[in-house]
């Protein structure tokens, strides 16, 4: 189980005082530029600049960020190998025979798979920027500004609260099972894991009922009110975000013809 939630890092990041709407604008804008970029150059520039912003401004330890980046890189490489041999067009580059199937990589499929890898890498870096610079609590206040349904926001907040409790309980149960050889062998693992899920659900449900009593005792009327900290948007940071996004868009237009095999 992944015990490292990105929120832990986000709560202490260097940009936590910056207005959350601005950070989401920067991250989402960069993601959109990556997805629409016709050439692999701009997404790679975005990936590099996001790495600088995350390590430099948000003060996330570089080795921590490098470790996080390994996950999307591994996924992107495997998926792009599939695309490389699946799609076609252009001159054949390389042919390999697997189990009687002839797989061919062509110039066009190499272009497509490089573009996809770059897009995924750039957009994931921008997603990491959002995840590492904006604590979840700030995302809720943006949801409220966007006038999303109250029930949806309340449900999200409650789920957020319960996630941490359950992860703690799941780890405790898991440790107890490991100490009793619960995961020695496949059959035992399946049994142990179902026991974990079952007892987690039962405990979780109990927590929910207890919470209901607690909320009733505090006159819960179907609404959660949360205080939000407002950080004024400084003109300088607004201008910085604006010029970054504009710069990336212009780069994307400039490099629109740049591909590996023309």
């Amino acid at each position: 189980m992944d015990e490292h939630l990105l929120d832990d890092l986000a709560l202490n990041n260097g940009l936590k005082e910056v207005d959350s709407r601005l950070k989401l604008l920067l991250g989402l804008g960069a993601i959109l530029i990556c997805v629409f970029s016709p050439s692999p150059v701009t997404p790679l520039i975005i990936a590099a600049s996001m790495a600088l912003i995350i390590v430099g401004l948000a003060e996330i330890p570089p080795q921590e960020y490098a470790r996080l980046l390994l996950i999307p890189v591994a996924f992107a490489v495997t998926s792009c190998i599939v695309i490389l041999f699946l799609s076609g067009g252009g001159e054949p580059l390389y042919t390999v025979s697997v189990l009687g199937f002839t797989l061919t990589a062509t110039t066009a499929s190499a272009n497509l798979s490089l573009l996809l890898m770059a897009r995924t890498f750039g957009a994931m870096s921008a997603l990491f920027f959002i995840a590492l610079s904006t604590p979840m609590i700030q995302v809720f206040s943006v949801m409220k500004d966007l006038r999303l349904p109250q029930e949806f926001i309340d449900l999200s907040m409650l789920i957020y609260r319960f996630i941490f409790i359950f992860i703690g309980e799941a780890i405790a149960i898991h440790n107890a099972q490991v100490m009793r050889n619960g995961y020695a062998g496949f059959r035992k693992s399946v049994d142990a894991l179902s026991m974990l899920c079952g007892s987690l659900f039962i405990r979780a449900w109990g927590r929910g009922e207890e919470m209901l009593i607690a909320m009733d005792a505090r006159c819960y009327d179907g609404k959660f009110e949360t205080g939000t900290e407002e950080h004024p948007v400084s003109l300088l940071s607004l201008a910085a975000v604006g010029s970054y996004l504009a710069g990336c868009s212009i780069l994307s237009l400039l490099f629109s013809g740049a591909v590996l095999f023309p």
Binding site: E151, D154, A204, G208, G222
Partner: peptide, 28 residues
């Protein structure tokens, strides 16, 4: 559901968090 039965919200939240924890578990 929430309008009709006020108690549903915390229980739905429990289920949502449960799905999250389950989907971040690794299966043998």
């Amino acid at each position: 559901i929430v309008r009709e039965r006020r108690e549903a919200l915390p229980l739905l939240a429990v289920a949502g968090a449960f799905v999250f924890v389950l989907s971040s578990l690794k299966l043998p």
